[in-house]
Design a binder for these strands. Sequence first.
DNA 1: AGATCGCCCTGCTTGC
DNA 2: TGCAAGCAGGGCGATC
Length: 286
Amino acid sequence: MPELPEVEVVRRGLERWVAHRAVADAEVLHPRAVRRHEAGADDFTHRLKGHRVGVPRRRGKYLWLPLEDTNQSVLAHLGMSGQLLVQPASAPDEKHLRIRVRFADGLGTELRFVDQRTFGGLSLHDNTLDGLPDVIAHIARDPLDPLFDDEAFHQALRRKRTTIKRALLDQSLISGVGNIYADEALWRARVHYERPTAGFTRPRTAELLGHVRDVMNAALAVGGTSFDSLYVNVNGESGYFDRSLDAYGREGLPCKRCGTPMRRRPWMNRSSYFCPTCQRAPRVSS
DNA sequence: AGATCGCCCTGCTTGC
DNA sequence: TGCAAGCAGGGCGATC
């Protein structure tokens, strides 16, 4: 669900409301929410206790809270329906509350991980030398990372025998792009989702990356994309970018550039939305 | 070795 | 109205 802009909105909220607070204790209400923490829920809560949270960081759709004075971080992935909420301790438990973190201060708020579908979760990991949780060392830098290497990405596209949307969703090539922003960027670039990457020229790659960055920055500026209450920031508020989507979810509606009805095609157990006129299918697709 | 597929879940919407 | 199928912002591990 949440892609880079939505996760970044959450990270900023955590930076404001959770950074530098000491953990009093944590409570795991659903074991699946910590399944990536191999030592189990008790170990997870025990290790959190008493440590101060550092400044939250993010790479792609992953975010993590470094624990000060340790070499470990709490890694979070929201999956399809995960939320990190900062709530008054007195607020009633959400229906899908999975993990609660209480703090040793008088602010009266706690951190809650709420997740309807339980595809997401929290876990604790050692950091690599760059301060990255070790289990996400394979995740590529994201396009808003100043150290993202455009040329290396282009070369990777040239090298692969795959198609462009698969490549955009491959988190080991470029991270943070999901189904919505892939379709949005491809529409902006007028590129069909099944275009083979091997034929990409340097200018075409550069243009596509530019659109990926533009659409993500635009979404970030309005708090991300929310279709329903499943994606919200740490204060439970929705973002507004759904109003600005040009492709995703617009099946049958006129293309905002040329008026042709937009199409939806089943794709990898998901959907791809595109304009059949602006985004010409490659002649031989398989 | 790299690419693809199935599956992990819950809940809402749609269509018979 | 009831029920089943289809669909949803993702990613991992098994498989070819």
